[in-house]
């Protein structure tokens, strides 16, 4: 992507294409990775509500996983998950096998 001059960009740092963060990877510096377990999940959607980065992926109103391109690993989803054992567990990135 070639960078634009000051004459070619909107003033004030406004982003005219709101929501274009989906095209920008922001999840690269995560320390902990949330791992979702479908078999424990009761689909209460608390994680989806609480995630500050809209990184809980849903289909037809059901959680199907985590968007690791945008998840920053804050752990809120796991903290809010009401089931025991947790249906989302936080694991150190370095411990997670690719």
């Amino acid at each position: 992507m070639s960078e634009k001059t000051w004459k070619e960009i909107p003033i004030g740092g406004v982003i005219e294409d709101a929501g274009n963060a989906v095209t920008y990877e922001t999840g690269s510096w995560r320390t902990y990775r949330p791992i979702w377990f479908a078999d424990r999940c009761i689909q209460c959607l608390r994680c989806w509500i609480a995630c500050p980065d809209s990184a809980i992926v849903t289909e037809d109103g059901k959680v199907t996983g985590v968007d690791y391109e945008h998840c920053k690993g804050c752990g809120i989803c796991s903290f809010e998950c009401p089931v025991d054992p947790k249906a989302i567990e936080m694991k150190l990135e370095t411990d997670v096998e690719e």
Binding site: G12, G13, V14, A18, G19
Partner: peptide, 22 residues
Amino acid sequence: PVTFGPLDLQDYYFEHKRQQVE
């Protein structure tokens, strides 16, 4: 819809200052 106040780093901050000059 638009976004106000995003992070503006080494690649574009300077351009936005130049616009203020204008």
